[in-house]
Amino acid sequence: MKQSLKSSSSLIWPLAGLGLLLLFNAVFNPSFFSISIVDGNLYGNLIDIFRNGSITMILALGMCLVIATGGVDLSVGTIMAITGAVVAIIYQSDPDTSLFVALLVALGVAGVAGALNGALVAYARIQPIIATLILMVTGRGIASFITGEKQIAVENDAFGYLGTGHLIALPFSMVLVFLLYGLMVLGVRKTPVALFIEATGDNEDAAHFSGVNSKMIKLLVYLVCGLFAGLAGLVETSNIANSDPSQLGIYRELDAIFAVVVGGTALSGGRFSLIGAIIGALLLQTLTTTLYSYGVDSALSPIPKAVLIVTVCLLRSDRFRKQFTSLYARKNVA
């Protein structure tokens, strides 16, 4: 009970940011909320936010676990590029490959990449930022090598469903996020695994002496993060029906880290919030869509982004809030 109260209070700030953005749209851009039905599917800005934001949400779910162990995975963007390249090559060599085989191979590669990161961090004891940097800088080269330094069109109906299909009038990628979130809640949050992860992030030595196999936990979270990154890469490739190793997933790791941190999981590790990561990703995508739809000059659009990020981070900081309120209190006294 106490736990859930605590975690919900840390969600207030990203939710406030999201509310503020929606309020802005309600006042200045009311058509933002209109939803219509096109070809039997829901169609509108809000749907786009979920669909385009699904990639960051998937990444954030994986990244959340890694950050909870006190690590970070910089390679998710390049894992996206590698899986995109793998799936493109599979469909290029045989356009009739079954979706199951294509997903299995592509996610297998992503899993290997994730496990490699995990092994470097857990068993070789390399700093996570360095261990994952290795794949971050080499991965894009690997992806380019796989596709022969070319963009490859991926036009397969079954595969296209991942990024552009609809299930019960909702974008499939949105449904996928709900499924993954449910899976994570049941498989991690509601089991002792969550406790093991938090213990590892809080104090690895203490966790180790309490009998937590923190090395295995670390390996697993990087593996999951890699798998989720692979899935995100597949959704993006499917969405644009094209695999471009030099562009796919570029700077995505930063979006994912931002979503997780804004969502209430500290970079120092420990307590984590899966729903917070989702809300963080939602906040980021809502901002992007708002900027497009309100018509902010492209050259200026990084500014509102930066302002929002700084505001949410400051509001999240206890110290800043205390200083701010004490400043206000002093003024009132005077």
């Binding site: 209109s34 992007t288 497009y292 739809s293 018509g295």
Partner: peptide
């Protein structure tokens, strides 16, 4: 009537166009 950056990228071009169609 509108001019937005898609960063020379396909995914961004798609996303901007989606927003433009709605706007």
């Amino acid at each position: 009537i509108d001019s937005q950056s898609g960063d020379f990228r396909r995914a961004n071009g798609k996303q901007v166009m989606e927003a433009m169609l709605k706007k």
